[in-house]
Amino acid sequence: MNVELADERILILADRFSMEHAEGRAWTKRIDAFGTLAKMTGFLKQPKDEEFEISYRERRLQPFWRVACSTVQAYERRREYAVNVAPEVQSVVLGGETRAVAGGRFQISGVEVCREESGKEVFFDGLTKAQNPALSDYLRHPAAEATAEMLAALTGEGTIVVPSEAKASTLVREVVASAIGRIEADRVTEETVRLEAIELYYRPVYAFRFKWQGKEAIVEFDALSGEARTGGSTFEQHLGKLLEPQFLLDVGAEAANLFIPGANLAKFAIVKGIELAKR
């Protein structure tokens, strides 16, 4: 089997909306964020704006993966074919060889030359590691390839870069295993797996913590889709701390050897470590 690896990349999707816009949208969801209690209170007396406080706000880059794979399988196999003939036919001569007829048919053999090509594109949530086809919608928005310097600059400005819990090697293994189909072959003439994209995307998300009557609730704003939703979480614990997430895109021999014993593939590291802003 021949395996071809694409260059791994990290890309940052550009915000469509500002922090100010996101906060305004989040504010409209403040009552919903506190659930039934706030809505019941609203029936009796509408909560006043001054009763609500935004105690924390953040911009973070949240990870997801895109892995694209294509396969080519070319092979040969010998097959027997049954050919129907008229009832009166007793035998058939093909290429100087007489074929007996039984039950209104005779047998011939041949070699089938086959070729199968397939492609697969899978999106994974970087935190839950689950496949999520809906993440493909984010690719409609412009993205810029990231460097260690760019990510460091963003963290220095207060943006939280959330480390991916999913490893590239594990995801590639899953995609390749599902892309390679079972074949019936006497001889394989070509078997190629092309990993056309191994990309770690970061999408911008804003989060706001509201306080009301001694309680707290979170509203998140998707800086690409423009959707504001209640619930969610924040990553404020990362602010002011030093992180060494080791964003390794490790799709080397560890993953490939499951399919190609003894393969010696290069191991790539796009970003070896990122420091968040110091205290």
Score class of each variant (00 low, 15 high):
213 Q>N: 14
122 V>N: 04
218 I>E: 04
92 V>H: 08
37 L>G: 03
270 I>T: 09
57 R>M: 05
140 R>H: 08
269 A>E: 14
3 V>C: 06
133 P>W: 03
82 A>T: 12
259 F>R: 01
223 A>S: 14
206 Y>G: 01
264 N>H: 10
136 S>P: 01
219 V>D: 03
145 E>K: 12
40 M>E: 14
82 A>Q: 13
98 T>G: 01
46 Q>C: 00
52 F>Q: 10
51 E>W: 06
208 F>G: 07
1 M>N: 11
74 A>N: 10
250 D>N: 14
230 T>G: 13
88 E>G: 08
175 V>H: 03
70 S>R: 13
103 G>C: 07
194 R>M: 03
224 L>Y: 06
164 S>Y: 05
115 R>V: 06
18 S>M: 05
89 V>C: 04
69 C>N: 11
7 D>V: 11
163 P>C: 10
199 E>T: 15
15 D>A: 07
254 E>F: 08
158 G>D: 07
83 V>G: 00
254 E>P: 00
42 G>S: 15
55 S>F: 03
224 L>R: 09
60 R>S: 13
49 D>F: 03
275 E>V: 09
248 L>R: 12
112 E>Y: 01
259 F>L: 00
222 D>C: 02
33 A>I: 01
189 T>G: 09
143 A>M: 04
244 E>T: 11
17 F>A: 09
142 P>E: 13
62 Q>D: 13
238 H>G: 07
185 A>E: 02
114 C>D: 12
231 G>D: 12
68 A>M: 05
220 E>R: 11
164 S>P: 00
35 G>Q: 02
196 E>T: 15
81 Y>D: 11
189 T>R: 13
222 D>V: 00
10 I>S: 06
9 R>P: 00
127 L>D: 02
142 P>N: 12
85 V>A: 05
256 A>V: 15
238 H>C: 03
91 S>L: 02
122 V>C: 05
171 L>N: 02
75 Y>N: 04
9 R>V: 07
16 R>K: 14
20 E>W: 05
147 T>K: 06
200 L>K: 08
242 L>H: 09
140 R>V: 05
250 D>F: 01
81 Y>K: 12
43 F>P: 00
15 D>H: 12
185 A>N: 01
177 A>F: 04
87 P>T: 10
63 P>A: 09
116 E>R: 13
181 G>L: 12
117 E>L: 10
97 E>F: 06
75 Y>R: 04
200 L>S: 04
180 I>H: 06
8 E>L: 02
200 L>T: 06
